[in-house]
Computed example of a mutant assay.
Amino acid sequence: MNWIFLSVAIIAEVIATTALKASDGFSRLGPSVLVVAGYGIAFYCLSLTLRTIPVGIVYAVWSGVGIVLITLIAWLLYGQKLDAPALFGIGLIIAGVIVLNVFSRSVTH
Results as ranks from 00 to 15, higher is better:
Ile41Asp: 00
Ala60Gln: 05
Ile73Phe: 12
Ile41Ala: 07
Val65Cys: 09
Gly40Ala: 15
Ala60Val: 04
Gly40Ser: 14
Leu69Lys: 06
Trp75Arg: 09
Thr52Gly: 03
Cys45Arg: 00
Val65Ile: 15
Pro54Val: 11
Val55Pro: 10
Val61His: 05
Leu77Tyr: 13
Leu69Phe: 14
Ile70Arg: 05
Leu76Lys: 13
Tyr59Phe: 15
Val68Pro: 08
Leu72Ala: 12
Ile41Ser: 00
Ser47Tyr: 03
Ala60Asp: 08
Ile67Ser: 08
Thr49Lys: 06
Trp62Ser: 09
Cys45Ser: 02
Trp62Gln: 13
Thr71Trp: 04
Gly66Ala: 11
Ile67Thr: 15
Ile57Glu: 13
Ser63Arg: 00
Leu76Val: 12
Ile73Trp: 04
Phe43Arg: 00
Val58Asp: 11
Leu69Asp: 09
Leu76Ala: 14
Trp62Cys: 09
Ile57Gln: 14
Thr71Ala: 15
Leu48Cys: 04
Ile70Val: 15
Ile67Gly: 01
Thr71Glu: 12
Thr49Phe: 04
Ile57Trp: 02
Ile57Gly: 06
Gly66Arg: 03
Ile67Tyr: 05
Ser47Ile: 09
Leu72Ile: 10
Thr49Gln: 03
Val65Arg: 07
Val68Glu: 08
Ile73Pro: 01
Cys45Asn: 00
Pro54Gln: 08
Ser47Gly: 02
Phe43Met: 07
Leu72Glu: 03
Leu46Val: 13
Gly66Gln: 04
Leu77Phe: 15
Val58Cys: 13
Trp62Gly: 08
Val65Asp: 10
Leu46Ser: 11
Ile73Glu: 04
Leu48Asp: 01
Pro54Arg: 11
Ala42Leu: 08
Ile57Tyr: 03
Ser63Pro: 00
Ala74Met: 05
Gly64Lys: 04
Leu72Trp: 06
Val68Cys: 13
Ile57Asp: 02
Tyr59Trp: 10
Gly66Met: 07
Thr52Leu: 06
Tyr44Asp: 01
Leu72Lys: 01
Ile41Thr: 02
Leu76Ser: 13
Thr71Leu: 08
Ser47Arg: 04
Leu77Ala: 14
Ile67Leu: 14
Thr49Asp: 06
Arg51Tyr: 04
Thr49Asn: 07
Trp75Gly: 00
Leu76Thr: 09
Ile53Asn: 03
Gly56Arg: 04
Ser47Ala: 11
Gly40Cys: 11
Cys45Asp: 00
Thr52Ile: 10
Leu50Phe: 07
Ile57His: 06
Val68Thr: 09
Ile73Cys: 02
Ile53Phe: 02
Ala60Glu: 11
Leu77Met: 14
Ser63Lys: 00
Val58Leu: 10
Ser47Met: 11
Thr52Phe: 06
Gly56Leu: 05
Ile73Asp: 03
Val58Gln: 10
Ile57Ser: 05
Ile73Arg: 03
Cys45Met: 10
Trp75Cys: 01
Thr49Pro: 07
Gly64Trp: 08
Ile70Met: 14
Leu69Met: 15
Ile73Leu: 14
